[in-house]
């Protein structure tokens, strides 16, 4: 698996794929994409890196175990659901939006944070599973 071509390619592929995954996440509300797909793409980026450079190198990108991403993402999604209750006295998970779009990111609202939470959870879940299996294989 550790061919030079793959190693060299994955050095460029990791940032590219990560960038792409964020792009997929952000545009998800308007065009195909979203938290699930973005998260899966990001995970694949790391898995590819692990194949090319070994597990340890890939794990070095994470100061904490990727498992901790799961509670972070869940909390983010949950909070974005609670935000309408706290601010606008509206029902759980009601969408709130800023009046004007930000540059690059586009429209910002609670749904975006919710999707970001999904993205983080998916990355956490996938990488926990894959890393755990590779470690004990």
């Amino acid at each position: 698996m550790k061919s030079i071509i793959l190693r060299t390619a994955s050095n460029y592929l990791l940032p590219l794929l990560l960038l792409f995954s964020v792009f997929v996440l952000l545009r998800g509300h308007y065009l195909p994409g979203g938290g699930f797909i973005g998260g899966l793409v990001a995970s694949i980026a790391f898995v590819l890196h692990a194949f090319a450079h070994g597990l340890r190198k890939a794990q070095r990108y994470f100061p904490i175990h990727p498992g901790f991403l799961m509670p972070i993402g869940l909390t983010l999604s949950l909070l974005s659901g609670f935000l309408p209750i706290l601010i606008g006295d509206q029902a759980f998970l009601t969408g709130l939006w800023m009046a004007d779009p930000l540059p690059v990111i586009g429209m910002v609202g609670t749904a975006l944070f919710f999707d970001l939470g999904v993205y983080i959870v998916v990355v956490g879940v996938t990488l926990t599973i894959i890393f755990t299996i590779s470690e004990t294989a």
Partner: peptide, 9 residues
């Protein structure tokens, strides 16, 4: 919901 990708919305 201010979204255009209906599935994602």
């Amino acid at each position: 919901a201010k979204g255009k990708n209906v599935v994602n919305v």
